[in-house]
Design a protein around this nucleic acid. Sequence first.
DNA 1: ATTTCAAATGCAACTATGTTGCGTTAATGT
DNA 2: ACATTAACGCAACATAGTTGCATTTGAAAT
Lengths: 135, 135
Amino acid sequence: MQLCCVNVLFMKVTRNTVAKGAILDLITNSDSALSHSEIHKLTQDLCDRVTIYRILDRLVNEDVIHKIVNLDGTIKYAKCHHENHVHIHNHVHFSCEKCLKVTCMENVQPSYIIPRNYKVNDVNFTLSGLCPNCL
Amino acid sequence: MQLCCVNVLFMKVTRNTVAKGAILDLITNSDSALSHSEIHKLTQDLCDRVTIYRILDRLVNEDVIHKIVNLDGTIKYAKCHHENHVHIHNHVHFSCEKCLKVTCMENVQPSYIIPRNYKVNDVNFTLSGLCPNCL
DNA sequence: ATTTCAAATGCAACTATGTTGCGTTAATGT
DNA sequence: ACATTAACGCAACATAGTTGCATTTGAAAT
């Protein structure tokens, strides 16, 4: 009896599989966010292309990883860092123009003022330029 | 002799064509940013699908329209608003969850503080939620 | 007005990216 | 060990974007 993980949206039990574990390890140990194609290349023939899509969807729904939309429209995935069970998704991302790596900047909080007749539910803030390694 | 437009990147002369004019009109008169597929549907059989891609690329390079990456990764295009020849690209975009329209919020300027060892060249700031029409 | 020349276009073919249905495999609770 | 069903592989499909090449057309020059 080892109930491992739950889809927080539908409270449905999900399973730990070899491919899921390997992909989560990859994302966890990466210093930058990874795209589907990057994961596909890195895992060689661990599993099918479609399975990677499904695993990534599952991990997002389980609130273990989160999606980042890069400036070119490509979607990348990074580990979630929960602080005392309070989940912060609305952090800043940095996209390096040289090494093309996307990193999460957990401690940067943007501020903004918009008209009262808008209701903001989500914030997507990506800065691009040169990261410390490429500067 | 009526030199019409130039590619600001390569200083190459470009031409005014029927399709380019129609697509620019469409983007100019739209109250929200448009994607390639939306433009394709709206223009019916004005020109080929590939031509739309090329016209959009050209208009971006001519600095007449700009790209906006939506929260789902889809790319939208909107007219550039130059203020006294000073070009502002780094403005805020609002993506409505209900009507799915993406609009530019010219007057909203976000502020942020990031470590000194990063060099920021571009800012991409998209808020999502409900727009005044859908609230 | 006509010529000239390259920018722009249409078309076909291609790659990349993401989704769906279905039969089979395997993780987990009993 | 057995039953249940989530997860998987595979094929097929849908959408998004790119490239090469022959043809058309905008606009400068004559």
